[in-house]
Structures are given as C-alpha cells and as structure tokens.
C-alpha cells in the first residue's frame, strides 16, 4: 500500500509538471519542466521493478533535454500566442468523455473491468499467457539471466529489428532535412 501511494504521488507530480510544461509562456521553462516529467518517470520505473527502463529513460531524457535546450536558446525569443479557445474547449470535452469511458473500463463502477486490476497483471491470472513461460524458462532456453533482454533480442528479435529500422529511418530523415544546401542551389551558386 505504501508503494502504491508513493507511485500515485509521483504520477501526480508528473501531471503537474506536464501541465506546467504545456502552459508556461517561456519556452526554456517548458523544456525543463518536460525534463522533470521524464526523470519522475524513471523513478517510477525503478520502483515498479523495471531497472532496464529506468537506466534507458534517464540517459534518453538527458540527451533529449540537451537537444531541446539547444533549439530554444539558440533562436531568439518568440512569444507564444494564446491557444485557440474553441480548440481548447473541444479538447477538454473530448478529454472528459475519454476519462469517463476509462473509468468504466477499469471497473470504477464495480464489475465488468476489461483491464486486469492494478497489481495483478495477466501473469498472475488463471490463464497466464506467454509471460509466465518466458520467466520460467529463459535460463535454460537462452542462457541469459536478464529476462527483458532475452525477450527483446531472442524471443521477439523480429520486433527489435523492426524498431531498429525505425530508428535508422528517423535518423536518416534528420540527416536529409539538415543537409546544408540543396544540390540544385549549390550548382547555381
């Protein structure tokens, strides 16, 4: 119970920081508040038994913070205009409906939950699926002791190849966008 309360507080902190990140008028404060959200997420990962994710989240957060801070400080200040009132109203309405549906989907009105209750993943149910098999047999089947790595790089390596392709393509796109002068322009000059 104590752990759940701590996680709840950290998520509330994340929500507050993300609202600040979205609503503040200074772009640098916005980017730094986004960093606070990411670091809180890595603490939650650590508490929820996911040290792999905590390590990755911390270093990714540092690098993306450097990227965004360089963008914001390099260019001159632009005063953000207030957001459109109609769009804000529509978003709030849609958000309210979404949260209400989520409340009933998680069994908030008693019974009929379509998502397993908090603290009891599919792994612990009567029909545990593949996760239980991965946990019980990783050692003799792959020889690795980190079950997450065994799933990423052995059981579901196809998936990882696809995701490596996504990273490759996004980096390639960034190179293409950042190429200094187009070939045509260079030939003319």
């Amino acid at each position: 119970m104590g752990m759940e309360l701590f996680i709840l507080m950290l998520i509330a902190f994340m929500l507050a920081a993300s609202l600040i990140a979205i609503e503040t008028r200074d772009l640098l404060s916005s980017v730094i508040a986004m960093g606070a959200v990411g670091f809180a997420l890595s603490v939650i990962d650590l508490l929820a038994g996911a040290p792999d994710l905590a390590i990755t989240q911390v270093v990714v957060e540092v690098v993306s913070l450097i990227l965004l801070v360089r963008v914001v400080t390099a260019r001159e200040e632009t005063q953000p205009v207030p957001s459109d009132a109609l769009r804000t109203a529509v978003t709030l309405l849609a958000g309210g409906i979404f949260l209400a549906v989520a409340f009933f989907a998680f069994g908030g009105a008693g019974g009929g939950a379509t998502v397993p209750p908090f603290g009891q993943p599919v792994l612990t149910s009567a029909n545990p699926g593949v996760s239980a098999d991965y946990l019980a047999r990783t050692a003799e089947q792959t020889g690795a002791s980190n079950v997450v790595m065994a799933i990423v790089l052995d059981y579901r390596a196809y998936d990882t190849l696809g995701e490596a392709t996504v990273i490759f393509v996004s980096i390639l796109g960034a190179y293409a966008i950042l190429r200094r002068v187009g070939r045509r322009k260079e030939a003319r000059a």
């Binding site: 119970m1 709840l8 993300s18 990140a21 980017v31 957001s83 409340f103 998680f106």
Partner: peptide
C-alpha cells in the same frame, strides 16, 4: 487506488494530446 493511478496516467496522456492539438508553437508541440 488502482483506478486513481490509471486515471491520472490517462490525464497525463490527455495533457500531451491537448498540447499537440491546440498549441501554436512548434517547441510546445
């Protein structure tokens, strides 16, 4: 408790969605 945790998570998701849809600044998006 569990439902509160899940609903707060979805509130963060909605905050991000709101920024993507309604904000006019590229950095905010």
């Amino acid at each position: 408790m569990g439902i509160a945790i899940y609903l707060l998570t979805f509130a963060i998701l909605l905050a991000g969605l709101y920024a993507v849809v309604a904000k006019k600044n590229v950095v905010k998006i």
